[in-house]
Structure formats: structure tokens, C-alpha cells
Amino acid sequence: MEIVVCVKPVPEAETRLRVAADARSFDAEGVKFVLAGYDESAVEQALLLKEATPGSHVHVVAAGPSPRTEEVLRASIALGCDAATFVEMPNAPAPDPIATARALAGAIRALPHDLVLCGKQAGDDEGGLVAAALGELLGLPDFGYVVDLRWDAAAARLRFQRSAEAGQELWESPLPCVVGLQQAWNDPRTAKLPAILKSRKAPIAKVAPPADATGHPTSHAEKFELPPPRMGAKLIEFKTPPEAAEKLVKLLREEAKVFP
């Protein structure tokens, strides 16, 4: 099986976010970029499928600015990916994920790909768009929020579960297809030190974004805001407990926007 995994560099989880000088995005100065958590699961799944299906290869692809994008490609190689392709993109603040998808598709079209794996969304923009856009660009079906992915060689079908609102959906699909994986349901392996040292010298193929990556409707980041610091609780006035409950749920829903 020829497996392509798409990965992305994101700020590490402990980053203290600051607004950039132009207020359009976060300040990347001094920020440490790492392989996105969802992508770790995607790489792990690719490696597990490779190990279960003899004769398989895993090719990791990423589109983004240098050097952080090459770093996550090297991290993926250290985990066990066989080859890597880097699509260099300009260092734009908060880039449009569809443009990223077009860049990835350009590289993937040139590679054998039975299965394209992505992390469902990244910890920064959390768009969750890339897997679906890739599917459309490559003319393949895509599935998001997937857990428990297995290849049934006898039936020549990919079997997996999707976590959807209605519950857990069990699916089967022929290849090729695109899968967006849920995070951390498998247990991503840790790269060993010798592999990390070796990955520093691994070759990374570099390609330019395809010509058709530009000239499409896109979006631009205009403002990046951090929430204001805590001022102390807004105390809810009420006469009866049900009134307090109702007011709170309304605030959580409409003001705080955290109601499930």
C-alpha cells in the first residue's frame, strides 16, 4: 500500500499566545513549532498500516514556510516515514487552509497514493478543511473524524469508524481515498535518538506549489484577538433557581459560546 501522510507545523501547546505587531495573527517570534498532535496520530496510523501490509511505503508531505515545515518532515522521518516532500509556501500569517490543500494536492498527484492520511484538524486554526479539500482535488472520497482504521486485504476494503453526532459510524471503502483522523486514539510512538540523528541527514524532496494554487477565491486574516483578562465573575441575579439556571445556560450559549 502506498500511503501519503500530510502533516503541518503548529505552535506547541504550551505557547503563550501574543498578538503580532500587525494584529492580523499571532506573534511567531520565539514560538516553537512542532508536529501537530492530530498529525502524530496520522503518522502513527500510516506506520501501523505499513507494518501490517508488507511492501507498503509511507511518504510524508507538508506545505508551509521554511524552516518549521522541514522540521516536522524530519520529525516524521524520525518516526519511520520512508520519504518526504516539502512544498515551500510563503510565510503568510494565518494562511488560507484551502491554498495549503491545493499545494499538498499538487505534490500528492505526483506520488503513488492508495491512501492519503491527515490529522482531522490542527491545533492552531482548527479548520478541519484540508482532508475534505484534498479529497475533492484528488477526485477521491474523504472521511473525517476517523478512529480505528484497518485494511482488510481479503476484501480489499478499508474499514474504519467515524465519530459523528449520530454516534459511531462503521464504514468500509475501496482505495484510493482520503482519511482525516481523530486525535490520539492510537498511541503515537516516540522517535528514538538514533533515528532522530539519522533524520537530520535524510533527503527531503522540494517542490514548488502548483500553478493552479493561486487565482482562486481565498480568505485573509484581518484581526487576531486574545480574550480580555478575567475581571471577576459576572454574578447572575435571580429569584428562583430555575431562573438562575436559565440565565446561565443562555449566557453560556450566546455570550461565552461554550455550551455543548
Binding site: 478541519g128 475534505a132 479529497g135
Partner: peptide
Amino acid sequence: TTFGRDLVGRLAIRWDASAATG
């Protein structure tokens, strides 16, 4: 929803549109 977010990703290409989720 999970459907909605995926749909927007596909439409961005199929319908040639700008896209946003969440």
C-alpha cells in the same frame, strides 16, 4: 457539524469558493 465542516472543504474546490469553519 462533522458533515458541515467536511462539506465546506469539498465545496471550496468543487464550487471554487472561499471557505471557513467554526
